[in-house]
Design a protein around this nucleic acid. Structure first.
Lengths: 239, 239
DNA sequence: TCAAAAGTGTTCGTCCTACACCCATGA
DNA sequence: TCATGGGTGTAGGACGAACACTTTTGA
């Protein structure tokens, strides 16, 4: 590498943006904050903020999430780097390179609009558009990634509480993919994958107020799904 | 977001690092440069460099690749963002956030150690370790990603020239995965996926000097593989 | 006529799909 | 006893693994 000079260039700001997804009442929700200042005043945006000099982007993401939602050291939290957005004009004020993360939460505590954000709220996925900056694209990328990872990883359990029923796990797939799945087959597929879920011995819970109580499961040690749980192929174009 | 000050913090440097992979003589090779200065003087490293104020990371990656290898606007080049490495101590000199890319080249022109690098060279994958900085990890991540993407995307054609035989395409899979595949089944699978490859009418080429000339194919318009071409599951633990 | 590489056919098992059916619970 | 959701069984078909076999070339 060439000789370098810390101050040779206009400085880059490095931020994190968080696409925090959860399931509430069977619908996918996103954590959004309302911007109080220009640019994009009054618009909704993804929570996020500056990476501090002594932090990695991952650490910054966890800190920002805690500040926005009041969730410190959540056990069920899944945080995953999505990609980095670095177009020179993505923030009109200055050069901002943003490392985006997708975060999944099992249940959705109310955010209490913390440090930066005027207002923070769970919003049903797909509403509140357009978001500020390039956040529509980041959010869409996060959704695509999560949908794809459900197929070949055990990510779905990150949407569920510590103990969950197979029906709830299936709802995760159906909600994110937007398709209905056959319950008996889903059940067999999940149980046939070693390490995906582990039954909690003897435990059962009523789900809909009615019906047979469902056995409870915990997330297992596996992280990858072999073979994958493929979503129904959306064919329709004969070409 | 809070009020911000461009110069409030120690500046971040933003760089790109490139894991450039290709196939030479049936073996996976990586493009590496030899460092001339401390730290890590004499060690091999991934090519890369600083993102300029008016560039996106993607643009910077293409520029750096061109500078290192002399390849400008290569048609068959596949460039893909891997992830961003931002641990505070990953560069002992200053705070450097690096956006890593995986790049695939169909054939391997000799690099002519350009601007920054003292020496640039194609090195068989797995040799020349340890690399400088955290580049061993970046390279391993790139290899994992490429191996995984072969399963469910049409990425393999990025390793092939514009016109290629199915045997060559199969070699890509076998080399990256490190496993042998059944030729008749591979062939059927590829041809059964609409848009993966398109036959070049009437064209054929001898491959090994002997044998029947193989029909030539081009990369098709598809980008995703549905259903995926799964690699043989490496089972072995009965647990 | 032999070796080597491309390409075709066929068998057999496994997995997926689809749907029918039984079980346990609250109203 | 009915509605509701959990859980099991099963027949049929699609797909993939394995391998035998044919074709076309250069030596």
């Amino acid at each position: 590498m060439a000789a370098y000079d810390k101050y040779a260039y206009e400085p880059f700001a490095v931020t994190v943006d968080l696409a925090v997804l959860t399931l509430r009442a069977g619908a996918l929700h996103v954590l959004l904050v309302e911007r109080g200042e220009e640019p994009y005043a009054g618009r909704w945006a993804l929570p996020g903020g500056f990476v501090r000099p002594d932090e990695s982007a991952e650490t910054a993401a966890r800190r920002e999430l805690a500040e926005e939602t009041g969730l410190f050291d959540v056990s069920g939290l899944h945080l995953e780097q999505l990609r980095t957005y670095s177009e020179p004009d993505r923030d009109p004020r200055m050069r901002v390179v943003s490392v985006a993360f997708a975060a999944l939460l099992p249940d959705a505590p109310e955010p209490h609009g913390g440090s930066d954000a005027a207002d923070a709220r769970w919003v049903p996925y797909g509403t509140a558009r357009p978001l500020a900056f390039d956040h529509d694209r980041i959010l869409a990328d996060a959704h695509d990634r999560v949908g794809a990872k459900l197929e070949y990883s055990c990510l779905a359990t990150a949407f569920c509480p510590a103990e969950f029923t197979l029906g709830e796990l299936q709802q995760v797939y159906e909600t994110v993919w937007g398709t209905a799945l056959d319950r008996p087959n889903f059940r067999r597929k999940v149980l046939a994958t070693p390490g995906f879920v582990e039954q909690v011995p003897g435990a059962a819970r009523l789900t809909g107020g009615r019906g047979k109580p469902a056995a409870l499961y915990r997330a297992g040690p596996a992280t990858a799904l072999h073979p994958p749980l493929l979503r129904p192929s959306r064919e329709g174009r004969p070409a």
